[in-house]
Design a protein around this nucleic acid. Sequence first.
DNA 1: CTTGGCACTCTGTCTTCCCGAGTGCCAAGT
DNA 2: ACTTGGCACTCGGGAAGACAGAGTGCCAAG
Lengths: 337, 337
Amino acid sequence: MVDDRKLAVLRAIVEDYVSTNEPVGSKALAERHNLGVSPATIRNDMAMLEEQGYIAQPHTSAGRVPTDKGYRLFVDRLSQVKPLSGAERRAIESFLAGAVDIDDVVTRTVRLLAQLTRQVAVVQYPTLTSSTIRHIELVPLTDRRLMFVLITNTGRVEQRVVESAEAVEESRVAHLRAMLNACLDGCGLAAAPDRVADLPEKLPAEDRPLAATVLSVLLESLVERHDEKIVFAGTANLAGADLSVGLREVLEALEEQVVLMRLLGETTDQSALTVRIGTENPYTGLQGTSIVAAGYGSGDRQLARLGVLGPTRMDYPVTMGAVRAVARYVSQILAAS
Amino acid sequence: MVDDRKLAVLRAIVEDYVSTNEPVGSKALAERHNLGVSPATIRNDMAMLEEQGYIAQPHTSAGRVPTDKGYRLFVDRLSQVKPLSGAERRAIESFLAGAVDIDDVVTRTVRLLAQLTRQVAVVQYPTLTSSTIRHIELVPLTDRRLMFVLITNTGRVEQRVVESAEAVEESRVAHLRAMLNACLDGCGLAAAPDRVADLPEKLPAEDRPLAATVLSVLLESLVERHDEKIVFAGTANLAGADLSVGLREVLEALEEQVVLMRLLGETTDQSALTVRIGTENPYTGLQGTSIVAAGYGSGDRQLARLGVLGPTRMDYPVTMGAVRAVARYVSQILAAS
DNA sequence: CTTGGCACTCTGTCTTCCCGAGTGCCAAGT
DNA sequence: ACTTGGCACTCGGGAAGACAGAGTGCCAAG
């Protein structure tokens, strides 16, 4: 009984604070939410909540504000993810449906998410590692240079320029291309290194130097892209918000691929939402912000993650709903292509 | 004589204001720059400069601040582009040299420029239009879907998924691919539409539907990319600066491809620096900012543009030096590959 | 356990005041 | 005709003080 009401009070505090951005006092609470008790009672509850670290007051004689711990409890037990409206869904669907290639999908997704949540959206490109090789192309640029192109089943294209020590004939390139495709078509990226391990031995001796060069580039492109490309959008939404620390730090963090990477979180269950609140985040400079992220991918495999970053004081139910919905729709789009 | 000194005063005002960010008064000017005259004389000059619109005072009894017109005169006639230090040059060179593909070149360039100038850097991807087709690839994904890949001599790769109304055999794809490459290899992108115009007629009737579909995608990818991709970096540098208007507007403008596009300016002479100061810029919301841009490209052709955006109160000589240097180095890199 | 009452403590805001920087103008000097 | 020192004037910005209002904690009564 007592405990129940305290939780209700906490929920009310979070909701009010999120919507008004001002410390909320006992009187206002009693008025706006019909908790059926007087301000004095609420004050007592608040005192206990504060003692337990769920709320804090910026100054003596100011209202209370949720702490990170308070938000955490709110997200875990006091709130429900809020589904999107029908109109929003249709908008998402039609907006994403127009994408022409994987780049376009990612670009549209990140913009969509930023607009939808009015926060900074972050989208990781689908990981190569869990996709398979669809085709490999070798295109002569000059007699010593080749363009190496790797196409995956997710529509991703990797390209590299290969320098050869000596001039190579067109026919050898064609041969090598055929060998590579025969060997690797449909092969998972993770398995590729093994498959090509003995390839040079099957080739005539004069082809081996070229093959070795090309293979090293192939392997390199597989490994290197392990740290994936990440894009973001909606930084303008940070302008108004008051991050407890400087805006500068946040913008800097956003431009650091590595930080962003970790921010989205390690791979978890597909479709499960990850929420990281304020100081739960390992990076100073982002401690006034929260991240809501989810995995996405075609079918059952999780390919990558996407999410949004905003002030700790954000509307978690709505944000979580938007992130989840977008993750699902993108997954659908990817599965269809 | 008189005129000369007034210009010297204007120059001094710009320099002082840029370095201190505070309105500069007659006394301070007389002290810091040895103009050989008394503050009272300077006051007279300042009054005239103000009358002519080169400077203004934020409030009565505050120092003077350059107007956009004042900056313009400064840039046009009173300043010299400041070359980079040797160390900076070496840093640029080594940083850009490590790029593996065109994407990498652009990414590195934009970061480099942002760091160098401590402002927001903007880089446009090299235009497809002035490059030539190196290779076209068609990769079957399913029996009704093809991946269309276009590779240009600048190392750029365009990809699209093509949907066919009916199942297509591998051999027909191969044939079409061969035809396309024979027809278009080395062809300028601008000339491509003409070259393929009569291609369907040369094909057996049963191949024509597929060919038509593929060609439409090809043409589309040529046209569509006319509005080019643009990337930016260094938004964190805006955090401290005081744009006369909100930071939000600027961030929003940066995420609008179209605005950015126009911002960099129309194609001009290669290597010529374009400077757009404050209200010279057509976009509200960017009127507290200036843009310094230059073209770059391999050899004599200008492929695209790059530049930086910062507060009107920026160090023009240094910024211009950095932009010019980076544009040159990128051009070198591109010419070499 | 809840509630109303009450004294207390802060913050934020508004006003006032004052200092100093900077100007414009004028009259004198070269 | 230009330069210079002097001087009165203006105005922004910071310091100090007063004040109102919101909110709390505690206590005693229901």
